[in-house]
Simulated assay, not measured.
Amino acid sequence: MATAVTNEVIIDWLARFHDIVAKQRAYLTELDSAIGDADHGVNMDRGLAQVVEMLQRQATGPDASTGALLQHVGNDLLTSLGGAAGPLYSALFLGAGAAAGERTRLNADELADSLRAGLVELVRRGSSESGDKTMFDALDPAVEILRKAADDGAGLGPATAAAAAAAVTGREATAPMLARKGRASYLGERSIGHVDPGAASATMLVIALAEAVAQE
Rank of each mutant, 00 (worst) to 15 (best):
50 Q>T: 15
131 G>Y: 11
44 M>G: 04
61 G>M: 07
151 D>F: 00
36 G>Q: 01
50 Q>H: 11
178 L>Q: 13
119 L>K: 01
122 L>I: 13
67 G>D: 03
203 T>P: 05
78 L>V: 11
70 L>K: 06
121 E>F: 14
19 D>I: 03
99 A>L: 06
187 L>D: 00
133 K>Y: 04
51 V>N: 04
195 V>L: 03
208 A>F: 01
107 N>G: 15
50 Q>D: 04
187 L>C: 08
84 A>C: 15
153 G>S: 04
2 A>Y: 05
65 S>C: 07
65 S>V: 04
206 V>W: 06
34 A>N: 06
14 L>F: 12
56 Q>C: 11
156 L>E: 07
26 A>D: 15
210 A>V: 02
111 L>M: 08
197 P>Q: 03
213 V>C: 01
127 S>G: 10
18 H>V: 03
181 K>Y: 14
106 L>E: 07
56 Q>K: 12
137 D>V: 01
135 M>N: 09
184 A>R: 03
180 R>N: 11
187 L>A: 02
91 A>Y: 09
32 D>I: 09
200 A>G: 05
74 G>M: 09
45 D>T: 15
198 G>W: 09
83 G>K: 02
104 T>F: 12
106 L>F: 07
59 A>H: 11
150 A>D: 05
63 D>K: 06
183 R>S: 07
123 V>C: 07
93 F>M: 14
199 A>R: 01
17 F>R: 08
157 G>A: 12
203 T>G: 08
38 A>I: 08
69 L>E: 01
38 A>T: 03
172 E>T: 08
164 A>C: 04
62 P>C: 05
89 Y>P: 05
32 D>L: 09
109 D>T: 15
158 P>R: 11
6 T>D: 02
101 G>V: 07
128 S>L: 14
13 W>G: 02
43 N>D: 04
196 D>M: 02
199 A>G: 03
98 A>E: 15
51 V>C: 12
45 D>Y: 13
113 D>F: 10
57 R>C: 07
118 G>V: 12
79 T>S: 15
123 V>G: 11
72 H>Y: 15
92 L>W: 04
19 D>W: 06
214 A>S: 12
104 T>A: 15
63 D>Y: 09
96 A>F: 00
124 R>S: 15
